[in-house]
Structures are given as C-alpha cells and as structure tokens.
Amino acid sequence: MKYSYFPGCVTPQRENSYELSARKVIEKLGIELVELEGASCCGFSLDAIDHLSSMALAARNLCLTEEIGCDLLALCPTCSGHFARVKTELTENPKSRSTIDAILGKIDRKFEGSSQVKHIARVLIEDVGVDTIRSTVVKPLKQLKVAPHYGCHIMKPSDEVRFDNPENPKLLDCLVEATGVTCVDYTEKKLCCGAPIMGVSEELSLDILREKLGSIQDRGVDAIVTLCPFCHTHFDLNQARMEEKYGETYGMPVLHLTQLLGLAQGYQPGELGLHENRVSVDDLLELL
C-alpha cells in the first residue's frame, strides 16, 4: 500500500509527535508514504473569508496527489474533510468546476478527481483492517482505560465525508480496542472540543473544553485519545490555562491515536515522541 503524505499545517508545526508516531505505526503495517512536494495548507482556513480561494488551494493539492498517481493520506481530519467537501462540490457543481479548472489552467494543472483522500483512521479501518492491526500488537495495553475523542470533521457532514456514524461513532473505539485498551463512553462524547473558536472567544472555547474534560474525568480514565492534531493541541496545551482560569486540577494525559497504537506495537515512548506531550504521561507509562 502506497499513499502520498499530506502534512497540513498543525501537525508539522505543533504536533510532530503525531507525525513521528504515525510514520512508525504505518511502517510496521507495511504502508509506504510518498512526500507530496510543494503542497500547501488544505485551504480550509480560507473558507470563512473566501470560499473560492479555499477550493482553489484544495484542488491544487489534489492535483499534486493525482499526478503522483496514488491516494492521499492526511493526519488531520479537517484537511481530509475539506478535500472531501471540495471534491464533492467540483464533481456536482459544473459552475464551481469550470471556475477552478480555469484557475488551475494558469499553473498547467488539471483536477480529475481520480485520487481518494483518506484520514489515517480511515486507512487503518478500511484499507489495513482491525485484524491486521491486532496482529502487530506485541504488548497489549489491557491495564489502560481511555476516553476516545472523535472531534467533528472526521465524520461530519456524513453525506460528504462518509465515514462512521456521527450519531453513534464507533470506529475510533474499534482502533483503540485493538490494542487491548478499554474504551469508555462519556456524556459529552460527541461534543466539539471548542478549539476552532479559540481566537474569537477564548472564554467560550475553554467553557466547552471544560465541559468535555469534566465529563471525561467523571469516568476515571487514564488518558484521552485523539485523531485530530488541532483537538489534540487544545486538550493538551490548554489544560494548564484552564487550571489557572477555573482553579481546577486536570493533569489528564492526551495521546495521539498513533502513539497508543505504537506503544502496543512495542515501540519505546521516546520513539513515539511521548516526551513532547505537554501534560505529563509519566504516571500513564508506569501503568504499562
């Protein structure tokens, strides 16, 4: 299996441990990554200001993977979700398609729609399979109890993303449980983490995070597991800010899905960048 690797913005700039652990995990599963030379931001962050620009950047990135001739693997569900939405629009809306075709013509590229765009969780579920993942587990993590955080863009809007069921998500639980870990449900499992509005209203954003974290803490778990670099930063970096704001103590470790999978595959914590996580994972590692 071969994919082009789409780096996005948040992962290479803020969550290198996600990229590091993802590369280790998929190497063990026999997946080859090709670098996507010259790729930019997926375009999502321009959507609020100018939809056309956000589509144009996405379409250009999609052209790059089509030219390599393989499907694209993204670590960020906002990127894979944006690509999925833009692909739908370019396929179903002839007016948008001809506008984008004209723009891409200026850089001698053409969007064909021939490559699939997949978040790593989708690759693991659909292309690799949970049984294969389980076969690479050498160190089952039966001692651990974790809360999976799905976030939003991995499955919404479902008519365009077509992954899992937003009203009753299960697939992250399946991946986590392949390592022997116990997944627990919690009241606010489907709630957004609040990260996207941090710049507009820090107060509201932290109120949402607090509700989410409180509901997770109530279940007495050892860690939160994420599949989005942006959600991860919000949970991991802003716990300290919340402790200051609300005078509460959290200290809840936040693991990238691929860090958890990597531990079960027998990698050492240092090989998975666990020392880069802001909330200490020392107590968690002692449980292993």
Partner: peptide, 17 residues
C-alpha cells in the same frame, strides 16, 4: 516539506482573497 509559494500565489491571484 516546502510549500511551492510561487504556485500558491498564482492560484490566489485569480481569487479575491
């Protein structure tokens, strides 16, 4: 991996951003 800034600029020239 470096962004191809020239191409990104060319693409965005044709939008209003």
């Amino acid at each position: 991996s470096a962004v191809d800034l020239q191409e990104v600029a060319k693409v965005l020239e044709h939008t209003k951003v």
